[in-house]
Design a binder for these strands. Structure first.
Ligand code: FES
Ligand code: FES
Lengths: 144, 144
DNA sequence: TAATTAAAAGACTTTTTTGTCTTTTAATAA
DNA sequence: TTATTAAAAGACAAAAAAGTCTTTTAATTA
């Protein structure tokens, strides 16, 4: 469904939302442990998201990654688009060069319903909402 | 959603169902042209599906790939499982080592609905059904 | 201001996926 | 039964994804 990069990105964003809700920042090492990802790999992913304005960061002592209140309203769709592009939102399920109602592949009519559900889900789900459930220990970002 | 290999496999299966419905066989070159895929690549994919009993073939002159009436009832789920494994049917959407109701990731409750829709769709859709729509020129396997 | 801290940047490696090419095997037809 | 045809098999190669390591830059703190 999503690339490994994108899975890590989403998990990291939720973790950062949680750890920085009091206005503090969280470092790469803590993030990597918190979501069980390779440290340098998630660093690169977050740098990329930083350049795109999806996450915020600060260097130096007491530095790290954080999300402000508006960042916590970021939708999963924003993250997925930034990392994986918009293939999942508009690409053909059977790999035709483009998806089209006028020139549909055999799976088109079934597929666009599912694609719409995925799109709706990603558009409506905000990082902050997921973080709240995490706070209540209702969900988890790693398997211990 | 699916790997390139799996996309080609599904398109090839539908094409073979169409071209062999009169009891004849269709060669690799024709299949590659018909679905716009690399010739040697789809050959390997179909050999693999052949070994797994998902498609039938015959060597020599007048040889090629074909599907009998029972093969035409093959579901997309069978093809997807044979090629991509069952990640899409049971894997965690955020990449946790395993998906579980007891230890759900933040996306779990939203994700299992979509996964169920995908599973239902793949289980109910048969190669022969898709081939019929193709015959009526309602759908296409390539973009010209 | 100098030392320290932590992200940013970028080069590099490994693994997986995707794609290509050549040789072998098995079927048919002359 | 020999020549021909087409899939099977398997070795390679290229590209993309995933992961690692080192150096640089920009903050903070002493
Ligand atoms: S054309 Fe394939 S999903 Fe739309
Ligand atoms: S645990 Fe992630 S989808 Fe079920």
């Amino acid at each position: 469904m999503f690339s490994k990069t994108c899975e890590y990105a989403i998990r990291a964003m939720i973790f950062i939302a949680q750890q920085s809700k009091d206005g503090s920042r969280v470092g790469i090492k803590e993030i990597a442990k918190g979501i069980d990802s390779p440290e340098h790999f998630i660093a690169k992913i977050l740098q990329d998201l930083g350049r795109k304005g999806v996450v915020q960061s600060l260097k130096g002592p007491t530095g790290g990654f954080y999300l402000d209140n508006s960042g916590r309203k970021t939708t999963l769709a924003t993250i997925v688009k930034a990392v994986d592009g918009d293939d999942i939102f508009s690409g053909c399920g059977l790999g035709l060069k483009q998806c089209s109602d006028k020139h549909p592949c055999p799976l088109h009519h079934e597929f666009i319903n599912i694609r719409k559900d995925i799109t709706n889900m990603l558009n409506k789900t905000k990082v902050g909402d997921l973080q709240e459930q995490l706070d209540k220990k209702l969900t988890f970002l790693r398997r211990d």
